[in-house]
């Protein structure tokens, strides 16, 4: 595992705090604690695109933020180039932080509406000393051109751009600090199909050009299948399956992955019968015991209700967390 650029080892993230002494004394009920990410391990090699798939509330964005260093894990460790990020001193931490950048879903709310585009893109590289005052304009122009934006528009404000162009600004801003890795959190979800295709193509180009490593978070399996080398499927805070993209989409192992793939509408499937999977995503406040998926799983056994299945290798490169693999 030494070759991994980033490795998350048994990381957990809980939201909400246990009661202090005073509130216990006053007999207040403890605030509920959400286990957004529950002992997840995931490593990403340099130049690899890992797709992270799951439904809303499964913790995929939290995991992305843990990888980007925006959130600190409650438990577990994050290794950056083989070293524990918690041990980093200030300078090393800063460079490690610059090394991972995020691209968000909604460029509208992630771009400062009062700054001109040149400032949005150029601010971080200037603050971090990547460029001096004399190189500023040329640098911003180059970043804009690379993201497919016309540099003559750099004096404009974000609201003067369309949704697709704003997403390009977000990409240019993330790449301006020359990161090693990108975390794309639903970066194309809000775009129209034809604009989405343009952004995916830009992403594929940049990936080849810059040899980017990427954690690509999305609920859209079609997009993930298209861009990812490896795919991890998340359900209620845990990774239930992880494998190379072609394996996940051709031989899904976990019943949840199978159900998810069966439900994806595809152009090829005409007048299909929907509704193979029953029930709803349980609340992350009160996840079911054992395997989180057992109340909705068609193959659930008594063991699934009590014992948490471990994510383990079932075929070379393919990992799955399901007790059924012990039976067969």
């Amino acid at each position: 595992m030494s070759e991994a650029l980033i490795e998350l080892r048994e990381v957990s993230r809980r939201f909400g705090t246990p009661n202090g002494a005073l509130s216990r004394l006053l007999g207040q009920r403890p605030a509920p604690i959400v286990h957004a990410v529950d002992h997840v391990s995931l490593s990403i090699r340099p130049g690899e695109v890992v797709g992270l798939v799951g439904e809303s509330g499964c913790g995929k964005s939290t995991l992305g933020r843990l990888a980007a260093g925006i959130l600190k894990p409650s438990d577990g460790q994050v290794f950056w180039r083989g070293r524990d990020r918690a041990d980093f001193q200030a300078a090393a931490l800063k460079s490690a932080r610059l090394g991972v950048q995020m691209i968000f879903q909604d460029p509208q709310s992630s771009l400062n509406p009062r700054l001109r585009v040149a400032e949005i893109i150029g601010e971080a590289p200037r603050v971090h000393g990547l460029i001096g005052p004399e190189g500023f304009d040329a640098y911003v122009d180059a970043q804009m051109r690379r993201a497919g934006l016309d540099p003559t528009l750099k004096r404009r404000y974000p609201h003067q751009f369309s949704g697709g162009q704003r997403q390009r600004i977000g990409i240019a801003r993330a790449l301006a600090v020359q990161p090693d890795m990108l975390v794309c959190d639903e970066s194309v979800a809000a775009l129209d199909v034809s604009i989405q295709a343009q952004i995916i193509n830009l992403f594929l180009d940049l990936r080849t050009e810059l040899n980017l490593t990427c954690l690509f978070i999305s609920h859209d399996l079609g997009v993930v299948e298209h861009v990812s080398d490896r795919v991890a499927i998340m359900y209620l805070g845990r990774i239930v399956e992880e494998a190379p993209a072609e394996v996940v989409f051709s031989h899904p192992n976990h019943p949840y992955t199978q159900a998810l793939l069966a439900e994806v509408p595809r152009l090829e499937n005409r007048r299909s019968h929907f509704g193979a999977i029953q029930g709803e995503l349980p609340s992350p406040l009160h996840p079911p015991p054992g395997c989180h998926f057992h109340p909705r799983c068609p193959h659930a056994m008594p063991r699934c209700k009590v014992e948490i299945p471990k994510l383990r290798e079932i075929a070379p490169g393919q990992k799955s967390a399901c007790h059924l693999n012990d039976v067969a």
Binding site: E55, S56, H219, L221, A259, L260, E263, V264, P265, F274, G275, A276, I277, Q278, E280, L281
Partner: peptide, 9 residues
């Protein structure tokens, strides 16, 4: 979500 969409459909 995909699974809920399928139920509605």
């Amino acid at each position: 979500d995909v699974t809920i969409q399928a139920q509605i459909l």
